[in-house]
Write a protein that binds this DNA or RNA. Structure first.
Lengths: 194, 194
DNA sequence: ACCCTTCGTAGACAGTGTCTACTCGCTCTG
DNA sequence: CAGAGCGAGTAGACACTGTCTACGAAGGGT
């Protein structure tokens, strides 16, 4: 493949940019093309379908989040428990900061499109990291995979429910921290001394 | 208001029916009208916009789930821990059985439309029930609202991640039960004797 | 009998995703 | 150097969508 498909990258960037200000419903193929300054048929050269373009944009969102995680882990304390906490808060904050992108990233039709395994595998490395951290942070009672998955699901649900205000409505909390803390304490025990 | 807006109910029923076989993307205004045997302008008499019709359909989904919960609680053991477990498994199973409906029910644009508080409050009674059960099932260490919210978020995330196969891909589990159990044990302690 | 309110129809309009035919530029080849 | 071939992007058509507006057909009240 050519080293720089300029338009291809530009379309993805424009889409991600558009997603920072507009709802994912506004991510029409034609609107992206318009903002990229090309005709509405141009994207077809790189993305056979609208969904595949959305999939590429979502993939860029996963990449962005992944970078943020590694950056945050660099400045986080070394012990696994602190690292898990860092990831947990970043997950929910990322979802709250990039609402539309988060929504797009986890749309099932977007997830299922794309490569062979689709986009689902984009979250696999992060999950493995979480599994390792859980195994290190916690006395091995049950399988760390199960605990890691349960934590992941809890974070995802917290991000989602918080994003559309259901948690705030139900508990009149002003930020999602208590729920994150409750989840981590429940699964990993109270925060121990260093 | 008249006692029976026949068409109004029929549109909602047809929509919910359509949702049992098709993806929520196929829930177009015109398709619903077609299947209801009326012209594409007819729904406008009852629902000013497409979104408001979707909102009504989602509301019927909440009502359906609510009925299932009360029915399941009738045959569940009396102790609060068992009731929580009943609700938890039902939540995830409902999401897996009625995928499209579940997806529609928790679309933020659908949630925000509708009445004054929107559709978010449709889940409030269930949440209060869960809070009471948590308060009764568990030694009062932290606020039961926080624990109940954390459990709800965990269930929701489990349902969602399970529905599109991410959990299965990450842990190659064949059903979501282990994650539900892990969540309940983490938050409420191991299952006690009867 | 007449009006007039209610419910539904039918057509227009802008916008969308997809498909196809086409027109530029460029490079590679004879 | 001339010309064929090809890649990239344009432009128009098609079916479909949601919304809006004008219209028609029953039916009941005075």
């Amino acid at each position: 493949m050519p080293p720089d498909d300029a338009l291809r990258d530009r379309l993805v960037r424009v889409g991600a940019e558009l997603l920072r200000t507009e709802s994912p419903g506004s991510l029409s193929l034609r609107e992206i093309a318009r903002r990229a300054g090309v005709s509405h048929g141009a994207p077809r050269r790189y993305f056979p379908t609208h969904l595949s373009l959305l999939s590429a944009i979502a993939r860029s969102g996963f990449a962005d989040f992944s970078e943020q995680v590694t950056a945050a882990l660099r400045v986080s304390p070394e012990d696994p428990r602190s690292k898990i906490k860092t990831i947990a808060f970043l997950y929910v904050r990322f979802a709250a900061t990039n609402r539309s992108m988060f929504e797009l990233m986890f749309r099932h039709d977007v997830l299922s499109s794309g490569g062979e395994l689709g986009l689902r595998d984009a979250s696999l490395p992060l999950f493995r990291l979480l599994t390792d951290l859980v195994a290190a942070a916690r006395p091995a009672r049950t399988a760390p995979q199960v605990t890691a998955a349960a934590i992941w699901a809890a974070l995802h649900g917290t991000a989602q429910l918080w994003n559309w205000g259901s948690l705030a409505l139900a508990t009149d909390a002003t930020d999602p921290s208590p729920f994150i803390d409750a989840t981590l304490i429940a699964h990993l025990g109270p925060e121990g001394p260093p």
